[in-house]
Design a protein around this nucleic acid. Sequence first.
DNA 1: TTGTATGCGTTATCAA
DNA 2: TTGATAACGCATACAA
Lengths: 316, 316
Amino acid sequence: MTVSRALRGIEGVSETKRTEIEAIAKQLKYLPNLPAKAMVEASSGLVGISFPTLFNEVFADMLLGMRRVFEDQAIATIVSTSDYNQSQELAWAQRLVAWRPAGMVLTGCDHASELTSLLAGTGIPVVEIWDWRSDPIDMCVGLDHQETGYALASKIKASGYRYPGFIGCPENIDPRAEARLRGMAEAFDSEIPTGRSPSRNAFQVGFEACAELLKGGRHIDVIFGLNDHVAYGAWMYLQTHDIVVPQDVGLVGFNGLGLLNVLPVELTTMRTPRERIGALAAKAIVARSKGVKTPVSLKLKAEYILGQTTRRACWP
Amino acid sequence: MTVSRALRGIEGVSETKRTEIEAIAKQLKYLPNLPAKAMVEASSGLVGISFPTLFNEVFADMLLGMRRVFEDQAIATIVSTSDYNQSQELAWAQRLVAWRPAGMVLTGCDHASELTSLLAGTGIPVVEIWDWRSDPIDMCVGLDHQETGYALASKIKASGYRYPGFIGCPENIDPRAEARLRGMAEAFDSEIPTGRSPSRNAFQVGFEACAELLKGGRHIDVIFGLNDHVAYGAWMYLQTHDIVVPQDVGLVGFNGLGLLNVLPVELTTMRTPRERIGALAAKAIVARSKGVKTPVSLKLKAEYILGQTTRRACWP
DNA sequence: TTGTATGCGTTATCAA
DNA sequence: TTGATAACGCATACAA
């Protein structure tokens, strides 16, 4: 018991004893046994994090924001990816709960219905990130994507554009993208024609979806990409087909990734506070596991970035 | 005890009892307590994985390859990133060992010296991936990057190029890249001039390092990028400065990422078996944890991809 | 300041 | 086939 106290730096151990214990521990190469600690404390100091994918800088950014906080607290993270698949997310959650994690972070607010009942009553702090809704499972840090889509489309509409198109992946894959699309339709007060491609690579999605959108024959004066990569893929398509941006058509991305810094044109886009979301989510979990009862629900804003792929002029 | 047996599907429980137990378990929403299991078994069914970064598709690919194997075995993965920093990797390893993991995966073969002594005698299966060396800590699945650099440069040399340059990040960051550079120098039998940039974004590294390399004033007829992204950044630089690829200068990448599929030119590069490395590493750990004594050491090969950024002709 | 008793949930071992 | 006992390493509660 004295050893336990000494090694944890708890008051009430004489200096003599403490140094003696520390010396012996070092000599013995003593390592605490975290599974045993987790058992007695009924919680493990592990935090589970689920992303749709890690082939997307957006999620890597959020992970980085979280890890900076968790590492300070000596919390290890069990990371998983769901491939935008709710049952895969559920299966992971089921396995994870058996580890008695100190918290869970889920991407988005759309989950398998069993997930809620699984988590109910466990007392595990849960943060849903990236997306935002008023009635989270437990806590929430993210954007209202519909509002964000509305805000972005309003800016674009104010630039004089009237015939928007949207390009992205098939429906029922990325609920956030569809929410943004709804917001855009709201801003333009009309249905928005879409081009969609099921490719895995986002550049390729942009290239192919752009082709599909324009094949539709409808007049389009501005194209909204699901994200920056998709928009850039479309940019490649337009270049190849001698369609000049922004003279012939405007092009808009989403996320504001540094990735595109060096590319030939700066993209008009919306910068999302990804690292900040991660950091805030992690802090919410840490606070909870330290006994703070208040649940966190934060709706953050994205920032409009005017690049060179939309016109600046503003006419009626 | 009977419950434990029944739930684990172990022989010697009557059908009656088993169904009865399963019913009650379901009704009680019973979940096994993995920390307790880990304690009694002195090993946790967790595997730790350390990458330099996750902002690089290469590592996301290896992670995917591993996860497919680990998930089949109900093994959870504790993922961490070291930022190419050995002491950060060491600190993570020290925390991880306290979890009594079923295995550890480390990227590369260059580690803090204390790491070896930390792991010695713990009996934890360790696989070093991506890089390859003859005397791993325990097991090894990867490429010999010097050999691979040699192989790539030999192909390029055979295409008639004589004045190579290399662009990448500063020295002492990525040991694999430097090993490839050594192999290239060997193939060309000369020092290779380099351009380097400390930027975080790989495209930007390519753009800036290319500028630096060409500023050097030496005659360069082919540029080797540290990886595909870096090469593509250089491609942007060359385009901007009206230097035509491959007429004026050849351009070579490394990794063969699908990312660049849609880009205007297919890059000459070397395709690395990333998912395969991950899968093999994971299988090695699973085998070990099941009692197989044989340590694994696999040296894989990369595949030369001839694109449109180097000339095809072959002259003396 | 130091130490003893107890219990966390699981599984191996042995007994019935 | 079923169950009792002990042990894993730690931390809480209590005693000296």
